[in-house]
Every structure is written in structure tokens, then in C-alpha cells.
Amino acid sequence: PPVAAFNQETLQQRLQALIEGARESWTYAIFWQSSYDYSGATVLGWGDGYYKGEEDKGRGKSKSSASSVAEQEHRKKVLRELNSLISGSASSTDDAVDEEVTDTEWFFLVSMTQSFVNGGGLPGQAFFNSSSVWVAGTDSLANSTCERARQGQIFGLQTIVCIPSENGVVELGSTELIFQSSDLMNKVRVLFNFSN
């Protein structure tokens, strides 16, 4: 297929297509976009993300958070402030904002503030080595040398995958245990091989 140009709109569509079309149950997908900092070094920063959430498992709502009451209050406060920032209103009475913020939602949100130097963290390693990093299993994540993998495990993830592409790295995370799939990696290569 012809290779499409990189833009924000198709990025979101590609992330959504990747997750919604997958056989496996992925919780989120993030595209870490490569750029250069003031010194000319390669940095991977937030490009875009698609949060699907956790499997319902018939309980009516997503898996609840293991966080403390104080932590939940903190998350809700941040979410209210972010909502105000986006909507432009000073205060929000939106019930949806006051719903419990799950661990994976929080992990996804915090990811928006992160960046990785070339070779640093799971995304940086994947990009620097031009090879995929697939970490599956609570122990593997907990014992990883990468802070992001350990953080992911604390927030309930069982699988984190980073697949390099021309302009960055596609990261997928899941609360399920998912083993390596060449089908997924091929899909990333097709969907994220941008022309520019």
C-alpha cells in the first residue's frame, strides 16, 4: 500500500485501528514521536495515544483502582483541573470527571508528560536498537531495569510492548498477559511506516 504522510489525525486513526483490530486485548496504545532537542540529540516525546480501557469481564465497569482514598482524591483533582483547562470553565460539576480514576487511566495520563532520550526507557531502547521490546508477566515488568516497566506493573499492567517505526515508537500496554505476536508487529510496520 502507498505510504501515507505523517499527521496527527491519521495517527489517532492508526492507533485506534491497531487496538480495535487486534485479537489481543490491549488497554492502550501510544505513539512516541522522535524529534531533536536543543543539543541535536534524539528525544521521544508524546505523539498521540488511544486509551481503550480494560476488559469488562461482566462486572459492569472497568477494573477498579487499587489506589488509596487520598490518591484517588489527588487523581480526581488533577482530572478536574485538566478538564477545566480543556473546556475553559473555571469549575466543573461534571459527574464523569468525579468517577474513580483507574490505575491504567492514570498511567496513560501521566505518560503524556513523559519523554525518553534515545536508548532510555523501553521506548528509547526500542528506537535506539531498532528492535522490539516485549515485556510480558508481572515479574518481568517488576524486575525490569526500566522505570516505565516497573511503573506499569505497579499500575496493573501485565504486558508492555514497544515496536520501533521510522518516526518513533509504538507502545502497547495491557492488563492481560499477552505473548509475542508477529501479526501485531507486522501491523505496526504497515500502519506506522510514514513517508516523511
Partner: peptide, 26 residues
């Protein structure tokens, strides 16, 4: 929140909107 760069606002807005949808459908 003020630290969230302008470029990430679109992702954040989308996340919040989809979250509302999920809550309403729950």
C-alpha cells in the same frame, strides 16, 4: 496541568471525551 504542552491538548481532550462516554455507557 499548566505543564501540559499545547501539542498534547488534543490527546487530552480526546481522552476526557471518551472517558465521559465510557462512564455514561457503564
Amino acid at each position: 496541568p499548566s505543564a501540559v504542552p499545547q501539542a498534547r491538548k488534543a490527546s487530552l481532550a480526546r481522552f476526557l471525551e471518551k472517558r465521559k462516554e465510557r462512564m455514561m455507557n457503564a
